[in-house]
Design a protein around this nucleic acid. Structure first.
Lengths: 122, 122
DNA sequence: CTAATACTTAGAGCTAACTCTAAGTCAACC
DNA sequence: GGTTGACTTAGAGTTAGCTCTAAGTATTAG
C-alpha cells in the first residue's frame, strides 16, 4: 500500500510516517520504481506497537533503541525484553503516582463541596 | 522569603517561578522596596497544588484558568470544583488506558520469555 | 571603593514530537 | 500535451514548558 493508505489505516499522518523513518523508528520501508514508499501489514503491526509504547509515555528515542535491536534479529530478544520490563515498571510507578494524586484531588473536590454547601445554608 | 529560598523549598527553579508569574499561574506575588519578589507559605501551598495538577498531566493553560478563578474569590468555587472534577475524570481514563497498555506489554514480555526459553532448550 | 552576589527585565534558545513548506519528479486523466 | 494530484527531499516552523542570556541595578563583604 502507499503512504496515504498506510496513513489512514494507522491513523498516523504521512508527515509523521516520513519523520519516523528519518529518525529510525520505522526501518526498511521498501520503495517502488518511482522511489515511493510502500507498506505491508507488518509495518502496520509495528506502527501499532510504536503507538502503544508512545501512549505509555516511552520517548521516541527509546522506541528507536528498541527498533535498532529488533533490526539486529533474534539474538537481541533478551535485551528487548529487558527494555520492555523496565518500561512496564516505570508505567506501574506512574499509575501509582497518578492514583495518589487522584485521591488528593478527590479530597479537594470534597472540600469544595463543603464550602458550597455552607454557602447555600448560610 | 526571597526567590532562591522559595525555589529551594518548592523544588522549582527561580527561572520557572518567574515564568509562572509571567503567564499568570502565580499571581499577586509581592515586591519589596528593591522590586524583588517575596514569597509566603501560602505561595508554597499554591505551587505545591500547581505541581500536583501538572503531575496529573493538566496543561499550564488550564492551571492558569483555575488560578484566574481562584483570584476572583469564593463565588467561583463551583466552577473550580467542576474544573477539578473534569480533570479527575480525565485522569481516571488515562489510568485505565495505561493499565490496558501495561497488560499488553506484559503479554509481549511473556512472548519474549517463551522465545528465549526455546532458544536455551535448543 | 571595588568586587562579588542576588535580584530585575525582555527576549532568545532549547527539546520533543511533530507539522508544514518549497521545489521538484512522475504518472494518469481529458 | 497540459494540468492535476500523489509522491519525493531538505529543511524551516510550531507548541509546550521551560531554561538561559544579556544588560542592568542594588546590597553586602573586605
Amino acid at each position: 500500500m502507499n503512504i496515504q493508505t498506510f496513513s489512514k489505516l494507522t491513523n498516523v499522518s504521512a508527515h509523521t510516517i516520513r519523520y519516523y523513518e528519518k529518525i529510525g523508528v520505522l526501518k526498511s520501508i521498501e520503495r517502488d520504481s518511482n522511489g515511493h514508499r510502500y507498506f505491508t501489514s507488518k509495518d502496520i503491526d509495528w506502527v501499532s506497537f510504536v503507538k502503544r509504547l508512545k501512549d505509555m509515555g516511552m520517548p521516541l528515542d527509546n522506541i528507536k533503541q528498541y527498533a535498532d535491536l529488533r533490526e539486529k534479529g533474534e539474538s537481541t530478544s533478551e535485551l528487548r525484553k529487558q527494555l520492555l520490563q523496565e518500561h512496564a515498571l516505570a508505567v506501574e510507578k506512574k499509575i501509582a503516582i497518578e492514583s495518589l494524586h487522584l485521591k488528593n484531588i478527590r479530597e479537594k473536590i470534597g472540600f469544595y463541596e463543603k464550602i458550597i454547601n455552607n454557602n447555600l445554608k448560610g
